[in-house]
Simulated scan of single mutants.
Amino acid sequence: MSKVLIIGAGGVSSVTVHKCAMAPEIFSDIHLASRTKSKCDAIAASVKERTGMDISTSQLDADNVNETVKLIRKVKPDLLVNLALPYQDLPLMDACLEAGVNYLDTANYEPPDEAKFEYKWQWAYQERFKEAGLMALLGSGFDPGVTNVFAAHAMKHHFDEIHELDIIDCNAGDHGQAFATNFNPEINIREITQRGRYWERGEWVETDPLAWSMDYEFPEGIGKKKCYLMYHEELESLALHIKGLKRARFWMTFGDQYLTHLRVLEGIGMTSIEPINYNGQQIQPLQFLKAILPEPGSLGPLTKGRTCIGNVMKGLKDGREKKMYVYNICSHEAAYAEVGSQAISYTTGVPAMIGAMMMLTGKWTGNGVFHMEQFDPDPFMTALNQYGLPWQEVEL
């Protein structure tokens, strides 16, 4: 029986809060805080209606360390779950250190003024968390998160060494909108428009944004889709922790209509994060674009189809070559029926709940800053099957 403080009130947070409330034997007390308290209250009302559990809520500026420390000391949680924006990772880690509470997030830190996400800023907290006797678990979403656990599972049960890793993320859903992003538009577009990067023989190789593509045949009737090479943060930690890794890449599917809109918006400067002067106000064009695009949460009832996210891994077992595919398929409609969100939020929100569960039940413990692949994958893999993200594995 544990108390958890969840920061953020977007689509992922909504899923995580609902799923925590569905496991009251572990999450006996849930407190939700965000900059906009009305969003927290709406999630709390939905949770009450679906599960009967009461969720307490607060208004919080997550950039303000003192304000967060004050709330932590008032709520007295066993764990802080950060589902706010990546810009808030460092202030929330600072608050956890000051107030003496463990920390979990789903996405690594990104400076607001630079579209660059990497783990160096959070890795710098290793000694401070270790000395404080606290644990920080980074990237407990799907990718990063479950994809890291899939790699650890494969290392434990199927390989002596993994030489090649391709993480492939397919959203085969359709929401009928001309152009919309499935999670925070600002973060999503910053991620997609930056240069690609992959790990090859001990160094990073850069590519132009979305310059490389491949066709991949997805299982269970999803069929052939075009995937584009991108940089994704889990590659950075997997390159350190997976034995024998010679190449690691990340691929994501995009439809032609989406990419056409994106190129036009990029061409006229709407995806820029360089501030411009508009009527005497400094504004980032991307922040303006975010304000006029559909709210990702509104896509839940509109989205039909499935996601398929998994790892294709090639390596050695007992001296012979082996190739494995470990993946999950998630239905947008089923996710919406269960928790009122589409599958993109669901596939991130459920692993956030499971990561919290691993920490609160003592299955994953340690002092310092950790990644998902550094722990025993078995209890997490079992929980994925139990809490709505069943996985399959096939030898190719």
Rank of each mutant, 00 (worst) to 15 (best):
C330N: 08
D318I: 01
P86C: 09
M22K: 10
I168H: 10
G269C: 01
Q287T: 13
V65G: 00
F254E: 08
A337K: 14
V12N: 10
Y231L: 08
G133Q: 11
P111G: 06
G368P: 10
A154I: 13
E266T: 08
E217G: 00
E67C: 03
L229S: 03
P377G: 11
I168A: 06
M155W: 01
L229G: 06
V205R: 15
N82S: 12
E25R: 04
D378V: 08
E25L: 02
E114I: 15
L389Y: 04
K226D: 03
F129L: 02
S56Q: 09
P86G: 09
F218W: 05
Y109W: 14
V75G: 08
W199P: 05
F183G: 05
D63F: 09
E393D: 05
P86L: 03
L80Y: 00
A95F: 00
T271K: 04
E338V: 11
Q374C: 08
A42V: 02
N184Y: 03
S140E: 15
D41P: 04
G255Y: 12
V101Y: 02
N188P: 10
C330V: 14
P86M: 04
E266A: 14
S237Q: 08
P91L: 01
A115N: 08
F117N: 07
L104A: 13
K76H: 07
R263C: 05
L384T: 06
I55A: 06
E25Y: 00
K304W: 09
K243L: 02
F375I: 04
R197F: 07
W251K: 08
E333C: 03
S28Y: 04
G173N: 03
